[in-house]
């Protein structure tokens, strides 16, 4: 069960990033015709990022403590000290932006460069932060692997 939750978290995160990128593309081509699609993408982004928060948060407070102990005893303690500590707080940036995105996207974007700039800024920041967070997750995961791998096998494969 722990593994299913663990994989569902980045999956929702990636879907949220892709939805935000979808918002960027629709905004760059904003017209009356694609307004509904843009709002759908913004709503999908919110749902995916909130799910990533709830699922990842449940895993973090329930299952992370033993993995943290393993990481701290291994050769990559900074995988927790720097990457996890930053990631767990950095995540709130795309979360807040994802909650705001549907509010910004409900405007009439065609013919309003101010409204488009706001949506592009918010969706762009979600994509950028999301990619940084996904990368940090990979480092944390490898921190566990490095700690559990027998010393002689590290770097030999």
């Amino acid at each position: 069960m722990s593994e299913i939750i663990l994989f569902a978290h980045p999956t929702c995160g990636v879907l949220g990033i892709m939805s935000a990128l979808w918002v960027v593309v629709e905004t760059l081509n904003a017209s009356e015709a694609n307004a509904w699609r843009l709002r759908l993408a913004a709503f999908a982004c919110t749902v995916c990022i909130v799910l990533a928060w709830l699922i990842g948060g449940y895993w973090y407070v329930t299952f992370y403590a033993p993995e943290k102990a393993v990481i701290l005893k291994g050769p990559w303690p900074w995988a927790h000290d720097l990457f996890m500590e930053t990631k767990e707080h950095l995540f709130f940036i795309p979360l807040i932006l994802a909650l705001f995105l549907p509010i910004a996207a409900v405007q009439r974007l065609a013919g309003n460069q101010g409204a488009r700039a706001v949506v592009l800024a918010v969706a762009g920041l979600i994509v950028f932060n999301g990619l940084v967070i996904e990368g940090a997750g990979a480092v944390i995961s490898h921190g566990v692997k490095m700690a559990l791998m027998p010393a002689g096998q590290k770097g030999t494969e």
Binding site: T27, L28, A30, I96, L97, L99, F100, I103, A104, Q107, R108, A110, G111, N112, Q113, G114, A115, R116, A117, V118, L120, V122
Partner: peptide, 28 residues
Amino acid sequence: PFAMAPDSATGTSDTSVSASVCGFGTAA
């Protein structure tokens, strides 16, 4: 993306956003 005509439907400046977008955007 940034070179479109002013919003003719609302008659407002083409850089203006609604009060709720401004309020919640600033809050964000």
